[in-house]
């Protein structure tokens, strides 16, 4: 069983739940940016939650099926079509041998998850099928899809047509978006006034937003607490002795444009960070389009853990609904 890529879309990659355990040598987790949507897509077609799917950004691919299968599209509102006929999102549908799955224009969100019964059966590399493009690792030949690629599909009976995630359980970020964060790491490097300003400002997603990190623009530059730079850090006040970067950490090179690192994060470097976006809000970042207004909202650890629990509860409800 295979699926032929007729058109690849803008940047479509194979992703699963990622590759933990190698961050210490610079190989990031990777995996779907919106993990909840990825799991829901798999559940809809009868796969294991962590099976490999396609993550399509802004624009869908065109895929030709050589066998019957069940498919589902979740995450961004990117309406699927079978041989030109519309199908609903967040709902399983059948694809017959010889049919083509294509997509209408993006309505909302940024990344759609395309699950196919049996899962995308590319080789497992370091425990995962996810694509890490920068390192040319995993996925389909370590890269985004190209026209003419033949995607191997695993064996799976596939769920019935018409299974659907109730609308109230689907998640896309609201506009303007609030990203909850725990101040910390090198927060002490900026003045109290700059800290307040950072949280009050409305930022906008910059065009440079990808799987490595999301850049934000439009807030005021941060003012640093003066110091003599420590040996080895470099001369700019935003420089630190190169250190590890947490997933979700918010670095601000030169104190001007915050970058939130995501699933394909660079594992470390020499820029200070003001804190970290909480795990419960990481999925939402992957659904932000350029120019979306966003604010960073300070929360406590207790609030972060409660939000994480709520997020897990949402997945439980999706499981129970199917």
């Amino acid at each position: 069983m295979a699926v032929k890529v007729v058109k690849p879309g803008l940047s479509t990659t194979v992703q699963d739940l990622g590759r933990p355990g190698y961050y210490h040598i610079g190989i990031p987790l990777s995996g779907g940016m919106d993990r909840l949507a990825l799991k829901a897509a798999n559940l809809l077609v009868g796969n294991k939650e962590g099976a490999a799917v396609l993550e399509a950004v802004f624009m869908g691919p065109e895929l030709y099926f050589t066998e019957d299968a069940t498919a589902a599209v979740t995450g961004a509102e990117l309406p699927p079509k079978i041989d030109g006929d519309m199908r609903p999102t967040w709902t399983s549908f059948k694809v017959k041998k010889g049919q083509t799955l294509s997509f209408d224009f993006l309505k909302k969100g940024a990344r759609a998850y395309i699950a196919i019964s049996g899962g995308i059966d590319v080789p497992v590399v370091l425990g995962s099928r996810s694509t890490y493009t920068l390192g040319a690792l995993g996925g389909f030949n370590g890269r985004k899809l190209e026209a003419g690629d033949k995607l191997p599909i695993g064996k799976g009976r596939g769920a019935r047509e018409g299974r659907t995630v109730p609308e109230k359980l689907r998640r896309l970020p609201s506009v303007p978006t609030e990203l909850r964060m725990l101040p910390g790491l090198y927060w002490h490097r900026i003045t109290d006034a700059a800290g307040r300003q950072f949280l009050e400002d409305t930022w906008k997603v910059a065009p440079e937003a990808d799987r490595i990190g999301y850049r934000f623009k439009g807030g005021k530059p941060l003012e640093f607490v003066p110091r003599e730079q420590p040996f080895g850090a470099g001369s700019d006040p935003s420089n630190i002795v190169d250190a590890c970067y947490p997933y979700g950490s918010i670095q601000v090179p030169g104190g001007t444009e915050p970058i939130v690192l995501h699933r394909d994060a660079v594992s470390g470097g020499g820029y200070f960070m003001v804190g970290t976006v909480i795990s419960a809000d990481m999925d939402l970042i992957g659904q932000l389009q350029p120019h979306t207004p966003a604010r960073f909202v300070e929360v406590s650890m207790a609030q972060a853990l409660r939000a994480r629990k709520d997020r897990a509860g949402l997945l439980d409800k999706i499981r129970a609904s199917l």
Binding site: M181, L182, G184, L185, A243, C244, P246, Y247, G248, S249, M273, G275, T276, V277, I278, S279, M301, A304, L305, R308
Partner: peptide, 11 residues
Amino acid sequence: SYGGDEHIFVE
């Protein structure tokens, strides 16, 4: 320092 709810960063 905590790095969100999933990391501890130690300088």
